[in-house]
Structures are given as C-alpha cells and as structure tokens.
C-alpha cells in the first residue's frame, strides 16, 4: 500500500515538473524554490526506475515490458534535466540549445536536412559500405584458401586496425573530388579491414566434425561453402557488419570536413558551427544518430533472422 502511494506521488511529481518547465518564464531558477522541485523530480525518476528494475529481475509477465521502460525512463530523465537547466538558468543558445528547440528546428528545416541525408547517407555511406564490405568478404574468401597469404595479411590487417584510417580522408578528397565519390572511397577503406579480419576468423572457425560430415555426404565445393562454412561464419560477419555501419557514417561525415559541395551532414555541421547556429548542428546530429541507430537495429534484426540457430539468440527467446 505504502509503495503504491509513493509511486503515485513520484508520477505526479514528474508530471508537474515536466509541465511547469514549459509554463514558467525563462530563467525561473533565479527563484531557488524551483530547484527543489527539480531535485524531487529526479529522485522520483530514480525511485520509479528502481521499482521497475525489481520487476525486471522477478521474471514476471511484466519483465519484458519494464526492460524497455527502464532505459526509456532514464532517457526521459536526462531530457527533463537538460530542458529544465537550459530554460531555468537561461543558458545561451551557443552553449546548449534545449531539446524542444532542437526538435522545432528539425521540423522547420526538414527539406535541408533531407537533402543532407540523401547526399551523405543514401549516396556516400551506402555505396561505400556495400563496396567495402563486399570487397572485404571476397578478399577473405580468397585468402582463406592460402595459409601463406593469411600469415602475410593478418599482421597487416591488425596493424591497419590500430591506426587512425580516418586520416586518409584528405587524400581521398584530393583524388576523387569534392562530391560523394570521395566520401564513399573513405568508407570503403574504413569498412574493408574489419570485414576482412572478421570474415576470415569466421571462415576459419568451421567445426572439423561438420567438415567431415560434409565430406561423407560427398558434397561439392560450393555446397560445402554455402551449407556449412558460410552459415558458421555468419555471426562473425554480422559483428563486422554492425561495427561497420557506425564506422561508415563517421567516415563519411568526417571526410566532408575536408571539402564538399554545399550539401551533406558533415558540411552542415561544420558550416553551422561557424555561424554559431547550434540548434541546427544538434538537429543534424539527431538525424545522424537516428540513421546510425536505425541501421544498427535493422542489422541486428537481420542477424536474428539469419543466425536464428546461434546459442546467443536461442537463449534470449526461451
């Protein structure tokens, strides 16, 4: 009974805080009284998260629901704090725009942001990602047959993984021009080595028992590859694909810092930082974050579908 009242009080407190943030005049933390409400609201959020986390570990029917709700509540708490501090202390726009301001900028500039997204993501990232991953896969498939090449290429691949490849961006811009082709080239080089190393590890991880079994079936070379080798390499390949989806976006955006036509997410960020339009910068970053998270999520879903037999995925289902 007691916990129920407390939960209700916490909910009311959070709602009150989130409504008041928008109603009070800007700079309301000059009256220190409102800071008390903010502290209360944060404590209320923490309390709610604790209660929900207990449900998660109790293996009840609501566990799955609260598994999503706890991080959502945490995100909400951060947004609430951010909005309240920016409005309450009247933080200048240059320093940090409020989330509501970023959202309205985003909605008001949709055509510009869409053009940037098209230039950077739909052209450079996707073309470079497909070519880099495809090239890495083909090279791995070719190298795995020769132990000599493996010995020679693996140390080089590991060395390349340890160096900041992003530095190649200015050279690519010089070679392939300002348009999206140079960004795609940077993405190809950045995604190639993770794909090569992971695919190689995956293709080498084949269970010898499986290979023997395929042999007793008198399977042909392509049958062995498609029915035994490739499926067993898939978890490794998806690791690289997921890692590369973030790398590709970073590569394309950073490459645009070195020269670009007047469109593209990297161009937008560097241009608007120069003009101190921080709300537009944050809106672009929001788009980039959304694109990054969605592509990562889509790849994760695809992985569940392709490698449904893998223990790590079967465990989650049961």
């Amino acid at each position: 009974m007691n916990t129920r009242i407390l939960t209700l009080a916490a909910l009311v407190c959070v709602c009150l805080q989130s409504v008041l943030v928008f109603q009070l005049p800007i700079g309301f933390y000059q009256q220190r009284f409102w800071l008390l409400l903010l502290a209360l609201a944060v404590m209320a959020c923490v309390y709610l998260m604790q209660r929900l986390a207990n449900i998660t570990s109790s293996r009840s029917a609501g566990a799955k629901f609260s598994q999503l709700l706890v991080p959502a509540l945490f995100g909400f708490m951060v947004l609430m704090l951010w909005e309240a501090i920016v409005r309450g202390f009247n933080v200048p726009l240059v320093l940090m725009p409020a989330p509501s301001r970023i959202m309205s900028t985003l909605l008001n500039n949709l055509p510009t942001l869409w053009a940037d997204f098209q230039q950077t993501y739909l052209k450079a990232v996707i073309a470079g990602y497909l070519m880099g991953c495809g090239l890495g896969f083909v090279t791995a498939k070719w190298v795995v047959r020769s132990p000599f090449l493996q010995k020679g290429l693996l140390p080089l691949g590991n060395f390349m993984a340890s160096i900041p490849i992003i530095g190649i961006a200015p050279i690519m811009v010089m070679w392939f021009g300002f348009d999206w082709q140079s960004k795609a080239a940077v993405v190809v080089i950045m995604t190639f080595f993770p794909m090569l190393i992971n695919t190689l590890a995956g293709l080498k991880s084949v269970d010898p028992l499986h290979a023997d079994l395929m042999h007793t079936y008198a399977a042909g070379k392509s049958q062995i590859f498609f029915k035994s080798q490739l499926p067993q390499a898939m978890p490794f390949i998806f690791n690289a694909l997921k890692l590369n989806s973030t790398l590709a976006l970073i590569g394309a955006i950073v490459a645009e810092f070195f020269g670009t036509p007047i469109v593209g997410m990297g161009f937008r960020i560097s241009a608007e930082v120069g003009r101190m339009n921080m709300d537009m910068v944050w809106a672009t970053i929001f788009v980039a974050a959304l694109a990054g998270s969605l592509s990562y999520g889509a790849l994760a879903l695809l992985e569940r579908w392709v490698t449904f037999w893998h223990p790590s995925i079967r465990d989650k289902r049961s």
């Binding site: 240059v94 320093l95 940090m96 992003i166 989806s245 973030t246 976006l249 970073i250 955006i253 950073v254 997410m265 990297g266 960020i269 560097s270 930082v273 101190m276 921080m278 910068v281 944050w282 672009t284 970053i285 980039a288 974050a289 990054g292 998270s293 592509s295 990562y296 999520g297």
Partner: peptide, 16 residues
C-alpha cells in the same frame, strides 16, 4: 551511444 556517429559532435564539444 556507440551507434551514434560520435565523432560528428567533436566540433560542438570544442566550441561549447
């Protein structure tokens, strides 16, 4: 936080 192209916020952090 890692699915976000973090390096993109580099200029912001430096300016802020």
């Amino acid at each position: 936080s890692q699915t976000v192209p973090i390096l993109a916020i580099a200029p912001i952090i430096v300016v802020v």
